[in-house]
Design a protein around this nucleic acid. Sequence first.
DNA 1: TTTTTAACCGAATGACATTCGCTATTGACA
DNA 2: TGTCAATAGCGAATGTCATTCGGTTAAAAA
Lengths: 198, 198
Amino acid sequence: MARQKSEQVRKAIMEAAHRLFMEKGYIATTISSIARAAGTSQSNVYVYFASKFEIAFAVFDPWLRAKVAELEEQVMAQDTPEACLRSLIDGLLHGIAADRSGQTLTLVQALATAKPGDEYNPDLLIWTMSRIHNMIGGALPGSDPAEREALTHSLMLAFDGIALRQNLRRGEIEDSLSVDALYMMVRALVDRRSHASS
Amino acid sequence: MARQKSEQVRKAIMEAAHRLFMEKGYIATTISSIARAAGTSQSNVYVYFASKFEIAFAVFDPWLRAKVAELEEQVMAQDTPEACLRSLIDGLLHGIAADRSGQTLTLVQALATAKPGDEYNPDLLIWTMSRIHNMIGGALPGSDPAEREALTHSLMLAFDGIALRQNLRRGEIEDSLSVDALYMMVRALVDRRSHASS
DNA sequence: TTTTTAACCGAATGACATTCGCTATTGACA
DNA sequence: TGTCAATAGCGAATGTCATTCGGTTAAAAA
């Protein structure tokens, strides 16, 4: 019955936002600058997205899914369970949570400043956890499901921790130390299992 | 040579801020409301603190130190190494990182929205890590220093993760699962050590 | 064509943190 | 004990944002 939203404009807004968030972070990026970079007006941005928060989430979602898919390939390419685990932990924490392009940092800022109405779809979180659970299953076939669940939760916790530090404790703690420590503990847990069964 | 800042006013500002941050969080608390509750003017708040960020940090610092000191007593009161570790992990993660009064949440919000000039003194972080390191030493006398270091880092990482979730993933992930998983891994690491040495 | 809906725009609005210009107090010193 | 200089304290700006409003106009349906 009437004029339709242009896929081109939506894409331009998302691309402009993606670039600006990467360069300046979520907070320092203004709707005005996104609009300018996308070649439209400030108010028109609100025709496509309900809020700044929604833009951040729209940009982050496909980025994270692509990163996780990439990680999955990398993990599957390893031959030993140890190499799989190491690759999973490194890729998840160094590669994604601590990612240099600042996407994770942007999401942390967006979530930290979210207003009561700003809610996000938990699908992404659920999907990510199920992928990790799956990768752990692949790395440790025949392992106890409860143990896989525990490992998944520990990795998600570490993911959040590293993500937070990107922002808050810039350079104050060397992430590699924490990642190595976590890997050491995971190995201890896994080794214990194989000892017990042998 | 001139008028002095009143310790009473400083205290009133900090107490008002403490209460409001607890009730509404950092972002929803305005300087104006802090000033009103403290019985002074908005602009006078800036005579005592350089920024909103600085107020949050001034409130958080003594709160965290007290909490950690309390945790130390609790941990020391345990008899077995297992009980010490369990008490340390529970107290640190459930008691402090996920604390109900919202202090940690406030700090996360403050740090996430910090502007370039807003920097905080790393003393608090260093002090906290050294206390944890110490508690681990007490729980596992004779343990490898490198292992203690690794455990300290893992706990700090988990601390950050839980703190983030207070804000970002409200109720989406059950923290207890993550904490239990972490404890399980720590136990595996510790047990491995005692097996190897026996 | 005509009609009608919603994209699109420029100009508000409303919240805030932070700053400014001024007044009043008070601590040091004569 | 009086003088004065620094600064606590205050009310009123400023400037920056996200978000909304009112009007205009392109384009889908009729």
